[in-house]
Amino acid sequence: MGRHRHEKAYLTAHDAGLTGCRQCGKVWPKDSTQCGRCGAHLQPVSTASLQRVWACWWAGLFCYIPANAYPMLRTNMLGSESNSTIMGGVIDLVGHHNYGIALIVFVASICIPIAKFIAVAYLALVVGKDKRAGGHPHLVIYEIVEFVGRWSMVDVFVVAILSALVQLGAIASIHPGPAAAAFALSVAFTMISAQSFDPRLIWRGPKVSSPPHD
């Protein structure tokens, strides 16, 4: 059917001169500013919303630098103290032949955050242009970013559990490092950045006119 090349024309609330509530889906006249059903602020479909996406994107990126530069964990084993950064932790795990866990930590704390930065930036750069309408691939990217984003927080929880649990006096103790806070902030900012992205922009393109769908 050539689904991607010849997208069927769909009438959007925006094209019909109406505003849809992103929270509950209720439709209101164009100039309404607040949803009368759920009370959410009604946002017009506009590239102006991308400003907030970019602001949080940069904030997240700046937090991601100290998150990698400073130690995540301070481990004290039989009197000798060692600091490990995120990457250092992965290298340690590989050194101890824990390849599976090394891969999980590497993907969750390094690959996913970087992929998320790239994906959000890509979406913010390509959408909202009048030239092109419809983009199932873009929607897929958006949904993956929204779904996966919160899972990066797993690293912060690992640090919390290890620090609370491994307190064995002289034998071994683990304390959190400053990178944990930077990493948590970075994840939070990228989550807000992805949430601020208005997926309705993905579909904005040449005006269409067809009856609403059932």
Binding site: L18, P29, W203, H213, D214
Partner: peptide, 20 residues
Amino acid sequence: MNTTLDPAAYLACPHCDTLH
């Protein structure tokens, strides 16, 4: 542009704004 639509009869997809 069609302005005769009654907003109460529709819902807009929160993801892509399509009217239903």
